[in-house]
Structure formats: C-alpha cells, structure tokens
Design a protein around this nucleic acid. Structure first.
Lengths: 329, 329
DNA sequence: CTGTTAGCGCTTTCAA
DNA sequence: TTGAAAGCGCTAACAG
C-alpha cells in the first residue's frame, strides 16, 4: 500500500497526499478531509526508505560502541537515547570490539546506510581516519579531542581524575599505593597511570613499578592483577584500580583472602558505574559523567547536522567518597 | 557519486556495474577490470537506501528493548549482535521503557523504516498487538509464548526457576523465607511468586504474606523492600529476591545493618547477571540464559525471514550455587 | 555478454 | 490550490 493508493482512494493526486503528510503547502479543507480519512481507513504509513532516498536524510544516526554489553557504554547509550528522544531520529548501534579495522568497517556500513551522523564511543581507530569519514557525514567522538567543522570530539582529563583518586588516598595517610593498570594501548588507561605517577610525585612518594599490575579493564583480570601483586610480597595499604570493573575483581580477590576493605586495604577506582553504589561496601571512585557524555554527544551531533553551533558543557570528573577507603592506621 | 558515475568512468552501462557489484551475471574480464578499478579509484560505495527501496529488503532488523542501559537486556543484546554478525544485517535498537503504548509506537517506527524483522525483548504490549504487527514483518519475542507463521515467542519457566531457588533454601533447612517480589503487572515476577508459593507448599510450609515485599526490580527498591520486611519484625533466615538487581539492594541493606550474608541470612536471586559473579560474596542465583536467548532470537528471526524453519534449543534455567546461601543452623 | 528501460515510493518543481 | 512529471540511486526484465 503506497501513497499512490491513498491518492486514488481519496480522489486526489499523490502530490496532494504528500503535501498533507508533510504540511508542505495549503490544501483545501475537503481534500484534506478526504485524504485524512483515506489514510486512517487504510492504516497507511509512509515508506521511510523512499522518503529518505528522495530527501537524502535517513533520520537515523549511527553509533559505534566497543562492547554492546558493557555497563560503561550502556550508560552513555542511555544518554544518547534520551538526547535523541522526540527528535525523530532513530539510532543503529554497532560494535567495534576495540578493533580499529572493525571500527572502520562498521563506520563504512553505517555510511552506506546513509546515516545522517555518527557517534563514535571510544575506540582504536586513528583520528585521521575519523576525520576522513567525517567528510561524508558529521561525527561526534568521545574519548578523543577532535575539532573540525564536521567532527567534534571530547575527552575528559583522565590524568587529573587519577590524581584526584590518588591524592585522596595520600590524604588518608596511605604511602604504599598499588595500581591495577589497564592495557597500555588504551589511552585513557595510560593517562590514568600518568596521573597516578604525578600524584605520587607531588607527594614525594617514589614510583615503584612493582606496585603496578596490568589488567584488561574487566573483573577477571582485575582479580588476577591483584593476586599477582599480593603474591609478589609487596606491601601496600591501598589500591587504585584503573576502572570500576577491575576494582570489582580486586574486591572479590581480597574478600577471598580475608583481607577486609577498607579496614585492611583501601580501594578506589574510576568510572562510577551505577552498580558501584551497591557493592559491599559501596565503592569510592572517580565519577565519570557517562550519561551526560551521551546526552552531550547527541546534542553536539544534532548541532553539526543542522549546522547550528552548540557548546558542550560536561560535568568535570569528581571524587565520590563512599566506603572503600579509610585512613591508614 | 553514484553507480551511474562509475558506469560512465568505466565506459559501461549501469547494469553492468550492478551485475559486478552483486555477482548477478557473467561479465567479460576486461569490463570487470575496468569497473573494478573505477570503483576502487572513486571509492564508490553503493547507496544502501536505494538498494533497499528497490529490493524491498533493508537488511536491518529492529530490536525493541525496555531499558537500553539495563545489564539484563545488555546480555541478550550481545547475543543478538553475535547472531547477526556476518549476516549483513544491522540492527536498530529502540527502547519501549516498559510502556505498551510506547512499544507500539516504536514498532510502528521500525516498520516504517522497513526493517526486515523485529525482535521484541520482554515488554507490556499485548500478544494480539504483536501478532497484528507480525502480519507486516516477522517478529520474535522473548518472555511470551507466541506461535504463528510469522511470529515466534519463547519464554522460560519462571515458576519452575523460582521453585529451584526456594527448594535450595528449604534443603538447606530454611523455613522462614522472605520474598522480595517484583511489580504485580510483570508476568515474570508474578510467576516467580507462584513458584515461591508452590515450593513452600510442597514442603508443607505455610505461605505468609507478611514475608513478601514488593520491589520494582531495581537495586534501590530491593533495598527498601528488605528494610520494610526487617522493620516489620518478621523473623526469617533466608531471602529470595525476584532478580539479581533487587538482590544487590538487599545485600547492601543487610551489610549496613551488620547482618552477615550468608552467616546470618541466606540470599538467593534470579537472573545471574555477569556482575553477580563478583559481588561479595558471589551471589547464589538462578541462571537465566540471557546471551543464548539473544542468539536464539536472532537465528529464529533469520529463519522466519528466509522461510526456513529453525528449532530453538534454549538451555533451561538452572541453580547456580555460589556463596550467599548456607545451611540454617 | 551487455545495454536500454522501466520502475521501487516518495517529494518537488513547474504550470495551470 | 492542485496535478503532471521528473527523478533520488539502484536493480531486473527484456532485448539484442
């Protein structure tokens, strides 16, 4: 059933039906009536595909995440979803799986589907490639600094955030602070390591590589990392985990070993996932405005698409003190 | 830049280009060569929208979830994503927010976009409405039993799962078992209540409504629910929470009150979210094959689309004994 | 093997 | 105010 059928039933031309559907021009009351009843009776819904082909606007935006089931991306997606609500845009979400090649492929797929814009959440694809794709459609990226007339990127100051975390520990009297790091090819994780080192430096605490163990940002490898640290016989009274998820693994390992948190060891992390409010005890962490980033990304993209400048105000990283850290005795 | 441009550059007709692109017919080696170099040099990518309009297949499937940021749906989405991988299908994900009207609206939106099929994850929309939409495009739904030639639904036996949970508690010697229920308009939650009652009945334990408190399936309300139970001075040695998320809230409340799990109170839940492996202590729960449900949904839908019957084999619900339950002393 | 041609369903000049 | 007609980019008869 097409617009043409409606036109036939209503006894008008297809252009008239189109005009009524889109409010593009004035139409006499009787024809409007005829068309509207025809539409209602036939349960006609215009074919979006045809509209898009004609107009060049698909009213869909493409989102590339790295892991569709990660709570980290989930929060941001919710922000994007809310930002797109009632704009008529729908979003097609694909996963890049932290792989530059796959990200590029997925972007090409989205571009072939003529999405009106792209949101790239983290990822390993090179900035220059992003910029190249941005020539076809506007792109907003998180976790990277980008700025052209068709691409916007915003990243938070991870180094600063990490400093916030470590300073908190130092203020509580901790001196031997272990760091469960992230993979070295992850810029965010790298910056957090830098922040850890800088905070130590400013407190005149020597950086000890033996106090650092790498994880892949997930629970299981956080657990393994802390185990390695413990087995290496290093002494430490506090742990800074590169992100909340690895901290969950740390927490479990300590629990298994009968090491109390925060009584025996303080634990702080980075992200503030929704779940962190409900760990036992609730996790002290650096709050990352995940939801707001999604909201900001969508409004920035909408701005890029419509050609109106929007300035993005993102809440800064902040320390959220809950119950996994305490004064060193 | 269109296929026509490519044809011009390569000195052939558009049909020839199309044939090469789709491998629809034999083309002489020299023309093929010419076209392929032209495509490569121009970086031509066919417009998917035009292809779709022509073919009637959009190569996209629509997914309606209820909460885009819920870990519950995230796992299933990952299954769907994996199931669609390398099929050429992309998915547009929208959220129904547990609202029948909104779900219907979103389905209409997806239908207008000519998705080739729909996956409906839970939801409040009536079965008959689903069936009606299924006349336009095949639908696979989870959490409801459906069966027509264009719609498949599969649900797990929540009542049985709940019985598994409560029997476990009873076998451990618990008799006073509290239940943190879900909203009564949620069929899954309702069935779990029924299972709870049935398990009590079969063990000759009288059902006591004072031992039941309702939650909305989220952490915060799980916490509130258990607080109400505790304040009501009811005695109980074990808690069955309607889902993992509410159990997290219960766990935190007990922690705050200095009630040890499982030493003072046993706790069991339902879902087995990935995080439940890392709570302290790890949560005993009923495992729901979330990921497999996503996988099954995608393959069932692909079958419906292609007209080939696929039979869905889903792992059954199972008890996963971890560390939040222990023998009543 | 290859080109011509007629649409897919809709929008939008252009005339009337 | 309304309709005729052209065309968005691609595919698939149908000839040749």
């Amino acid at each position: 059933m097409t617009l043409l059928d409606v036109a036939r039933v209503a006894g008008v031309s297809p252009s008239t039906v189109s005009r009524i559907l889109n409010g593009t021009a004035k139409v006499s009351a009787d024809k409007r009536k005829a068309v509207e009843t025809a539409i209602a009776e036939m349960h006609f819904e215009p074919n979006q595909l045809a509209q898009s082909l004609k107009s060049g606007k698909s009213m869909t935006i493409g989102i590339v995440v790295q892991d569709i089931s990660s709570p980290f991306f989930a929060e941001t997606l919710r922000g994007v979803d809310d930002g797109l609500k009632a704009t008529g845009y729908a979003s097609v979400i694909v996963s890049g799986h932290w792989n530059a090649q796959e990200e590029a492929d997925r972007i090409k797929l989205l571009l072939a589907r003529k999405v009106d814009g792209l949101i790239l959440l983290s990822g390993h694809i090179a900035d220059q490639d992003v910029l190249r794709f941005a020539k076809q459609r506007p792109i907003v990226a998180t976790g990277r600094a980008l700025s052209s007339d068709s691409a916007i990127g915003f990243k938070l100051d991870n180094e600063y955030g990490a400093m916030l975390a470590v300073r908190h520990l130092i203020e509580l009297g901790h001196r031997r602070i272990a760091f469960v790091a992230g993979p070295s090819d992850n810029p965010d994780a790298d910056e957090r390591l830098a922040g850890y080192r800088r905070a130590l430096l400013e407190a005149d605490i020597e950086f000890d590589p033996k106090l650092v163990a790498e994880s892949d940002l997930h629970e299981a490898s956080g657990l393994l990392a802390i185990n390695r640290l413990i087995e290496s016989q290093q002494q430490f009274s506090a742990v800074f985990a590169v992100n909340d998820q690895s901290a969950y693994g740390v927490r479990l390992s300590l629990y298994r070993k009968g090491i109390r948190v925060p009584d025996d060891i303080s634990l702080i992390a980075f992200d503030d996932l929704p779940t962190s409010l409900y760990t036992t005890p609730p996790l002290t962490t650096i709050r990352q405005p995940l939801y707001d980033m999604g909201l900001a990304a969508s409004s920035a993209l909408l701005g890029l698409i419509s050609g109106t400048a929007v300035d993005i105000m993102l809440p800064a990283l902040e320390l959220v003190v809950r119950e996994t850290t305490r004064r060193f005795r």
